[in-house]
């Protein structure tokens, strides 16, 4: 019996295990090895063992600074916009409209983010929103190719990823909990803060992590809407691997990014645990 179970487990886990080994661990190991190597004079990777690449990391300080400012900012902005939307969809809207509205949230995903970002070039460009504001006498405004434009693109592009986990968390929230809170004397805003918000924390956490992690590796939106002037680590990596072909340094930057990301995720998870809800708690419902 024990043998069969062990075999069953092996059978169940082998495909995923191989998948992870081939597509996650192996490339990670390669990146790690490369990061201690050197740049081939004509570009690419030359074997070696040096910490030079890591010592050179401050050369990409600005990229890390931009990423670690705009990624959290974008995550927070997406959260602030997504939460009310998810709340509305999960709690306020009638069943009849719910499906339609949910589909509307997904529809943009049917088009490539590249094409959608291009649409924003026009919306934020001189003939778009700034022209409209100018027509209302709000003065000249430059939006495109600014960090703000990148933020708009980021929030726009990643909003559904934030909306859905929160929506799911709120959707399964037992409405009688809110009635109980109200019954016990909590006015609506307080029952929101004390019940709804903590109960939706797992969704908030999932959405934020998803968006934050993807944003940390983002390069397309800053390139398109930042006009190349808003430089993310992702852009630095694209340049290092595809332009200057300094694979060793690129690998070191990638490793540093992964390490920073892991630290941020760990800190965030702990913080949320402290203020929010244990997954078991929510599992009760």
């Amino acid at each position: 019996m024990a043998i069969t179970q062990a075999r069953a487990r092996a059978l169940l886990l082998t495909p995923a295990g191989l998948w992870y080994a081939a597509l996650l661990l192996f490339p990670l190991a390669v990146v790690l090895i490369f990061s201690f190597g050197e740049r081939n004079p004509i570009g690419g990777y030359a074997p070696g063992f040096t910490l030079e690449q890591y010592a050179n990391l401050p050369a990409r300080f600005a990229a890390f600074r931009n990423t670690l400012t705009l990624a959290p900012l974008g995550t927070v902005a997406a959260l602030l916009i997504a939460y009310p939307l998810a709340y509305y969809l999960a709690i306020k809207v009638s069943v009849r409209w719910k499906t339609t509205l949910l589909i509307l949230v997904i529809v943009p995903f049917w088009t490539s983010i590249l094409i959608r970002s291009y649409a924003w070039i026009y919306l934020l460009g001189g003939n778009g929103i700034p022209a409209l504001l100018e027509a209302f006498g709000l003065g000249e405004l430059r939006l495109i190719n600014t960090p703000f434009a990148v933020l708009v693109g980021i929030v726009y592009g990643y909003l559904p990823l934030m909306v859905f986990p929160i929506y799911v968390a709120l959707e399964k929230l037992d409405k009688s909990l809110l009635e109980a809170a109200s019954d016990l004397g909590a006015p609506p805003w307080r029952s929101f803060l004390q019940i709804t918000l903590p109960m939706s924390m797992p969704g908030v956490m999932t959405g934020s992590m998803l968006v934050f992690i993807l944003l940390t590796g983002e390069f397309l939106i800053p390139a398109i809407l930042g006009g190349g002037k808003v430089f993310f680590v992702g852009n630095a990596l694209v340049d290092l691997f595809l332009q200057s072909r300094n694979w060793a340094f690129g690998s070191a930057v990638a490793v540093a990014l992964i390490v920073i990301m892991l630290i941020v995720v760990a800190l965030y998870t702990r913080a949320v645990r402290r203020f929010g809800v244990r997954r078991d708690d929510v599992g009760l419902m």
């Binding site: 037992d174 009688s176 909990l177 009635e179 109980a180 809170a181 109200s182 019954d183 016990l184 004397g185 909590a186 006015p187 609506p188 029952s191 019940i195 903590p198 109960m199 929010g276 809800v277 244990r278 708690d281 929510v282 009760l284 419902m285």
Partner: peptide, 20 residues
């Protein structure tokens, strides 16, 4: 008078205890 200001309290069918 909204529910949170009424001098009544309820025991819910499925208790509605706050799981967190």
């Amino acid at each position: 008078v909204p529910s949170h200001r009424r001098p009544v309290n309820m025991v819910f069918q499925h208790y509605a205890l706050f799981p967190h």
